[in-house]
């Protein structure tokens, strides 16, 4: 049962797509340049022509392309989302990654032959939820929320007949994905509605001489001494005060790195591994993808996982195995 794990890699630009494919990605996932995807960042993502060209490049190199259409369509304005699904189908992508029930319904009805995956943003964290998406919309794969432990993933896989994809590297949501409005509370923009979390348009870094402060909207998210490692002020990675004590209450500014767990993830019945970071540069993508290519190949051969040397590119330059270990909770 030890099939080789599929390596699903991010791309925010055609250059990143080339980098990912060249570094050995099995699949590249990406989004259109609008609010239909959960990395709707300025200057990022693909127009239709770039997608078509990227798909051609990927297919020529035995790689696939998935398109994430994983925000929740706005009431009264369904067209951009429907069009995204239609265009992805027309261009011939290998799968679409969806989060919204209404949109999944639309895709299943309108494009029954288009492979449908369930985005992590749908937060399907138990077998019954996954079975629902399977039966209702013919979803063939679910990207698991980053809240489950390894044993929970293993147990889950025994109860469902849907492929599972799990995050192994990159930024880590500490809240159940698709169920977090922290960003919009401070900025008016959220992953669910506009495809951004802690948007750069609301971020300010202020040098106060004795400290550098990062703000999101009107709120101080963190403050750093000049020699201290800094991070982007993602709301849940900030330093806050409860009971008179300052701490990274929600999460330290760390990156997920589950490379060491690849054998266990295979054992747990996982189909695919996902690398986070469509907003990161192609240097990051080339480095992470080639490291994980080696790791996945080693795991498939039953060999020890090689050292990946990815510390310098992880956020805050710390890493965690995240929710996969119960102590995280």
């Amino acid at each position: 049962m030890t099939n080789k794990l599929e390596l699903v890699c991010p791309a925010g630009t055609p250059a990143s797509l080339h980098a990912a494919v060249d570094a050995g990605a099995d699949v590249v996932y990406l989004g259109f340049r609008d609010e239909t995807n959960a990395r709707n960042f300025p200057g990022l993502n693909f127009n239709r022509k770039e997608l078509a060209e990227g798909l051609e490049y990927a297919h020529a190199n035995d790689a696939e392309v998935y398109v994430a259409i994983n925000t929740f369509p706005e009431a009264g304005n369904p067209e951009p989302w429907k069009k995204a699904v239609d265009d992805a189908a027309k261009i011939g992508v290998d799968a679409v990654i969806l989060a919204d029930i209404g949109l999944a319904d639309y895709a299943a009805q309108t494009h029954p032959d288009l492979r449908r995956h369930l985005s992590v943003q749908a937060s399907a964290s138990n077998p019954e939820a996954i079975k629902f998406y399977r039966e209702a919309f013919g979803v063939q794969r679910v990207v698991l929320p980053r809240v489950l432990t390894l044993p929970e993933i293993s147990a889950l896989n025994k109860e469902i007949d849907v492929e599972t994809e799990v995050f192994v590297f990159g930024g880590l949501c500490v809240m159940a994905e698709g169920r977090c409005a922290l960003s919009s509370y401070a900025t008016g923009e959220s992953p669910n509605m506009t495809g951004v979390c802690s948007p750069a348009s609301h971020v300010r870094y202020e040098d106060e001489g004795d400290r550098m402060v990062s703000r999101l909207g009107d709120f101080t998210i963190n403050a750093f001494a000049p020699d201290e490692k800094a991070g982007y002020p993602t709301l849940c990675k900030g330093r806050f005060v409860t009971e008179g004590r300052a701490s990274y209450l929600f999460e330290e500014p760390t990156s997920l790195n589950a490379a060491a767990m690849l054998p266990e993830l295979m054992e747990a019945g996982v189909t695919a591994l996902k690398i986070e970071g469509r907003q990161r540069g192609r240097a990051y993508i080339a480095q992470v993808v080639s490291a994980f290519r080696k790791a996945v190949d080693a795991a498939a051969e039953g060999l020890p996982i090689p050292q990946l040397n990815l510390d310098s590119i992880t956020e805050g330059q710390q890493k965690t195995s995240g929710a996969y270990e119960k102590t995280w909770r």
Partner: peptide
Amino acid sequence: DALFFARDLVVEGDTEAVVA
């Protein structure tokens, strides 16, 4: 991002513009 996390780069002003 990596440069920034290591504090090699300092960004001031409109962060969205820098990200773009």
